[in-house]
Deep mutational scan, measured.
Amino acid sequence: KELVLVLYDYQEKSPREVTVKKGDILTLLNSTNKDAWKVEVDDRQGFIPAAYLKKL
């Protein structure tokens, strides 16, 4: 599985998104959309803007 590093805090703005903190390391589920990547956070799945993430 692929991991990503969170570069900036992000507060979810819709039910399809998830809230993350800078420095979190998350499982990347889908990065086919260049604008928003799907990740898993504490058994929740949701989207975060790709600009907030860096592949490890």
Rank of each mutant, 00 (worst) to 15 (best):
S14V: 06
W37G: 00
A50V: 11
W37N: 01
D42F: 11
L28A: 02
D43I: 06
K38T: 08
Q11I: 14
V4S: 01
V39I: 08
Y10I: 02
T27N: 08
L29K: 03
K22L: 04
K21E: 04
K1N: 10
T32V: 10
V4P: 00
E2Y: 12
A36M: 15
W37C: 05
K55E: 04
K54C: 15
G46N: 03
V41I: 13
V41G: 06
Y52K: 04
D9Q: 03
T27R: 14
S31A: 12
S14Q: 08
V4N: 00
L5C: 12
Y52W: 07
I25M: 05
A36T: 13
Q11R: 11
D9V: 04
R16W: 15
L7A: 02
S31G: 10
A50E: 04
D35P: 02
E12M: 15
D43R: 11
A36G: 08
L5H: 02
I48S: 02
Y8P: 00
A36P: 03
I48M: 11
D42E: 12
S14W: 09
V39C: 05
E12A: 15
E17L: 06
Y8S: 09
R44Q: 06
V39W: 02
N30Q: 09
K22S: 07
L3T: 07
Y8A: 14
E17Q: 07
R16G: 15
I25T: 04
T19E: 03
F47P: 01
I48D: 03
P15F: 08
D35H: 14
L26T: 00
L26S: 01
V6M: 02
R16I: 13
S14A: 09
K34R: 12
D42K: 12
A50R: 12
P15Q: 10
L5V: 10
V18P: 02
G23A: 01
A51P: 08
V18D: 01
T32K: 11
V20E: 01
K21I: 06
Y8G: 06
A51D: 09
L3M: 11
G23P: 01
D9N: 08
K22V: 05
P49E: 04
K21G: 03
K34W: 10
S31M: 08
T19H: 05
N33G: 10
L53C: 11
L28Q: 00
V41M: 10
L29H: 03
R16H: 14
Y8L: 09
G23D: 04
T32A: 13
S14R: 07
K55Y: 08
L56H: 04
V20C: 08
T32I: 09
D43K: 11
L26F: 04
Y52P: 01
V4M: 01
Y52H: 08
K13T: 13
W37M: 02
P49Q: 04
Q45L: 07
K55C: 10
K13H: 08
T32D: 15
V20A: 13
T19I: 05
A51I: 14
L29T: 04
K34V: 12
S31L: 04
A36I: 15
V18T: 04
E2Q: 14
K54Y: 11
D42L: 12
E17R: 06
I48P: 03
E2C: 15
I48E: 02
E17H: 09
I25V: 11
D42Q: 11
T27Q: 09
K22H: 05
D9F: 04
V4Y: 05
L53P: 01
D35N: 13
P49R: 05
L53N: 00
P15N: 10
L53S: 00
L56V: 09
K38E: 15
V20Y: 10
D9G: 05
V20F: 07
I48H: 02
D43Y: 09
N30I: 08
D35S: 11
E17M: 06
E12F: 13
L29D: 00
E40W: 10
L53G: 03
S14T: 12
V18R: 02
V41W: 08
T19G: 05
Q45A: 11
K34P: 15
G23Q: 04
V4I: 03
E17C: 09
E12Y: 07
D35T: 12
V39H: 01
V4G: 03
Y8N: 11
L28E: 00
G46M: 15
Y8M: 14
W37I: 01
L29C: 05
K22W: 04
E40P: 01
V6I: 03
E12C: 14
E17K: 05
T19W: 05
W37H: 00
A50H: 05
V39F: 03
V20Q: 00
K34D: 12
Q11N: 13
Y52N: 07
D24H: 06
K34A: 13
S14G: 12
K21F: 10
L53M: 05
L53V: 09
D43V: 07
L26C: 13
V4C: 11
L26D: 00
K55M: 09
K55R: 13
T32N: 13
F47C: 12
G46E: 09
T27G: 06
K13E: 07
L26H: 05
E12H: 09
T19Y: 05
K1F: 12
I48Y: 01
L53I: 04
L7N: 01
R44K: 11
E17A: 08
E40D: 05
D24T: 10
S31H: 09
V41C: 09
Q45V: 15
R16M: 14
V41S: 09
K34L: 11
V41D: 05
G23L: 03
L56F: 08
E17P: 09
L28S: 01
K34G: 10
N30G: 07
F47R: 03
P15W: 08
F47E: 06
Y8E: 12
G46L: 15
D43N: 14
L3W: 14
V18F: 15
E2W: 13
K34Q: 12
T27S: 08
K38R: 11
V18C: 08
N33H: 10
V41T: 13
F47L: 07
E40Y: 07
L29N: 02
L5A: 04
E12K: 15
A51V: 12
K34F: 10
L53D: 01
V4Q: 00
G23Y: 04
